[in-house]
Design a protein around this nucleic acid. Sequence first.
DNA 1: CGCTTTTTTAC
DNA 2: TAAAAAAGC
Length: 457
Amino acid sequence: MTGSTTLVWFRDDLRVRDNPALTAAAKRDAPIVCLYVLDDESAGVRPLGGASRWWLHGSLEALAGELEELGLTLTLRRGPAAEVVPAVVSETSADAAFWNRRYGDAERAIDTELKSGLRADGIEVQSFQASVLVEPWTIQTGQGGWYKVFTPFYKAVLAGPPPRQPLPAPAAPDGGFHHRRLDGDDLADWALLPTRPDWAEGLRDRWRPGSAGARHRLSSFLRAGIGAYPDEHDLPAEDGTSSLSPHLRFGDVSPFEVWHATDRHRAGAPADAAGASAFLRQIVWREFAYHLLYHLPSLGTENMREEFDAFPWVKPSAPDLEAWQQGRTGIPLVDAGMRELWRTGVMHNRVRMVVASFLVKNLRVDWRVGEAWFWDTLVDADAASNALNWQWVAGSGPDAAPYFRVFNPELQAEKFDPHGEYVKRWVPEFGTADYPEPMVDLKESRRAALDAYASIR
DNA sequence: CGCTTTTTTAC
DNA sequence: TAAAAAAGC
């Protein structure tokens, strides 16, 4: 196939293993161009938050290294994807362009248009399933609709065909892949890493972005963590969760690898079977979020229960909002969570529910305000899961916790952090005169929240 | 993936 | 009299 070139456009799939687009490109006997596009400009595509940009830098660096081992080069370009991708196709005279699918509304619109435009020019375009186990249009209720409730969705996923086996990294042919080295941006020039101030120290301590870090984390979780998962995953002081969420977000590791590694472990270690099943159930929550985002593109911006459009949200004062963001509410478990988030780019899931409930119910702030803060500060910020979880806590979503379920942060601390270990770690001044008084009375604000809810139902 | 109040049951 | 269960938000 002389004269031909294949473009592989990397997006949320920053890995060489189980990357169907890359594997398909490797099967064509043609030079391969590997491209990543930083797109902060396309209408409707939400620019990545600060913590996610930090992660992206690390994942791209790792991906470039892995491609290099295969004899391939990662080219970086910046701009609207709808312009950058065709420009690279024509610059390289590529006759094929492959990518793995994404599921957000604006992203799909861009990809669909690119696909038809390139095909009209005679380019072979193929997209692949790589980031979700179950594509949102492939699973239906008995009525032929889409699922709005988790449990039936979960059962349908388990009853359906098993996820395909992950693909190995493509093997370079003798003499290595042909590849094209193009002009591109230097990763450093994208300034994804913070400077002045450098707030990323805690992130560097906590994480190793990239697929080697992901696989290391997956195997240590299966070896040492999954047996205790049912008992410990809800305890924020323990390292009881997988910590794979940011790796899954950027595709350092594929959900197919996670699924099958866990499934194999379950088969070989009966004592860990309960933990493995509970963990895979969480993986299906991620699938459910993508399912909903696809069928409800406004999941991140609109209340899914319309009655919440009339909810009397309180616009927070700047100091009140900052007290929540910076962990100075005077409620120890809330402050611990918000400080863990700021420092490490994640927050334990149990505590995410508590801080969200506090913002949305005790402070009666619109869930979108919290969603935006998480978008900026979480390394695992994901349009689907972030939106679903905020709407779940707010009570405005499909299959949501009813609004009247108000978490009491003091009781939650007694139940899930009984020795105060987590609070002590993140709020060392708790118990001293330096720690602020609660910014609201929990009992009174709960009452006010329930009254507000009564006004819309 | 709640909390609180009320009612019932078990000493 | 207190623990457990149920009900309502």
